[in-house]
Design a protein around this nucleic acid. Structure first.
Lengths: 206, 206
DNA sequence: CCCCTTTTTGAGCGATCGCTCAAAAAGGGG
DNA sequence: CCCCTTTTTGAGCGATCGCTCAAAAAGGGG
């Protein structure tokens, strides 16, 4: 059989993801990738096919991690609705975390890619739809439990929630103080909670 | 004096803005610009200095147009708060407009640029702060008129409003049907209106 | 119509882009 | 320790990048 592959696919993909997340697709060169993965071009191409394919795999890995984080939040919350609100609040601490970017990699990609990278763009759309579907599922569970009004359109609310996350994380990318981001997250969380059927109707205002 | 300049700065900048808005900074090449402005490289450089400077001028022009649109919306609305809510609703029709991109050029730029284009990035931050300031001014007028609660933090709400616009327009960039975008805009508009002191407290829900 | 200044042109610079492929290196198996 | 297969290397491909600059073209002024 002979010469087992020395490289660690997991680690390599992780490095690629962080690089693309920070710099975006176009601003990241093969030289950057070679440096980050500590691999030579021939090796990179034999394992990943092309820059765009590596990018797509990075997007997938990013999304898998993001969904896992959401799952964790849903497990921790007392109810689905509260969990989602707390998930929003959690994004308010984005500012302190040493991430490649405070903005969402999927949104960065969505705004960066056009028809010339159609395959990758389509991939981003699919992954975003997946995130939205998970939001929807959680909200639907919440509604069935009676935590949300029975006639509430959970698909519509799931889209709102996703737009909130997009807006929050794009806003957090601004050169702005951390308190502003925390307050924004808190306001969005309150708006979401205010839809609940439970007592506290103080909701939106602070 | 002799040889007056033939080119029309206004038109040229407009073409550049549309190109950068559609494709972003990195994905737009000098060849693209030459084609769009119908100018040769030497001419472009003598008038605009560099690709990055042309980009910054495009950002400025974009923002000036955006502020003018906001101003128009504020003039048309019965009150500042209603005007802002209707401004959000207006973004729901983004889908039908033949724009270079449904996403905001400032947000696209904010997410695309990093330290390597520090000057342009700083510019984006300044322009976004300007938009936020205009939102704040309108909300403050609204509060003084008694349309909003006296103790409401209008700076905080202005940031929320900007994040909503960012989220709405990023979401609209997805491969999604127009109704979803309209509903999203409507929901955000309702949340904003629900903060008002006027009667209808049905607010957020639909 | 020629002069003079300014504007425009466009060939082409050095650097970098994504990527290929022949050669070298790296391990098991026997 | 040699054989055999697979993996890795890295020089360098053609194409394109942002940009420069000497030469040509384009207008008024007189």
């Amino acid at each position: 059989m002979s010469r087992p592959s020395h490289y660690d696919r997991h680690t390599a993909l992780d490095q690629a993801m962080q690089l693309f997340w920070r710099q975006g697709f176009h601003a990241t060169s093969l030289k950057d990738i070679e440096r980050a993965l500590d691999m030579r071009p021939g090796s990179i191409y034999s394992h990943f096919g092309s820059k765009e394919k590596l990018f797509r795999e990075s997007l997938e890995r990013y999304t898998r991690l993001g969904l896992a984080e959401l799952e964790r939040a849903l497990d921790e919350g007392p109810t689905p609705l509260r969990a989602l609100a707390d998930y929003l609040r959690g994004l308010g601490t984005l500012y302190d975390q040493a991430l490649p970017s405070r903005a969402c990699m999927l949104v960065k990609s969505l705004l960066e890619l056009d028809e010339r990278e159609a395959a990758a763009r389509e991939h981003v759309n699919t992954l975003l739809a997946g995130m939205e579907a998970r939001f929807h599922q959680a909200l639907e569970t919440s509604r069935r439990r009676g935590e949300l009004p029975d006639d509430l359109d959970t698909r519509r609310l799931a889209r709102r929630l996703q737009a909130d996350v997009m807006g929050l994380r794009a806003f957090a990318q601004r050169d702005i103080d951390r308190q502003a981001v925390e307050e924004l997250a808190e306001d969005m969380a309150r708006t979401l909670e205010s839809l609940g059927t439970s007592g506290h109707r103080d909701g939106v205002r602070h």
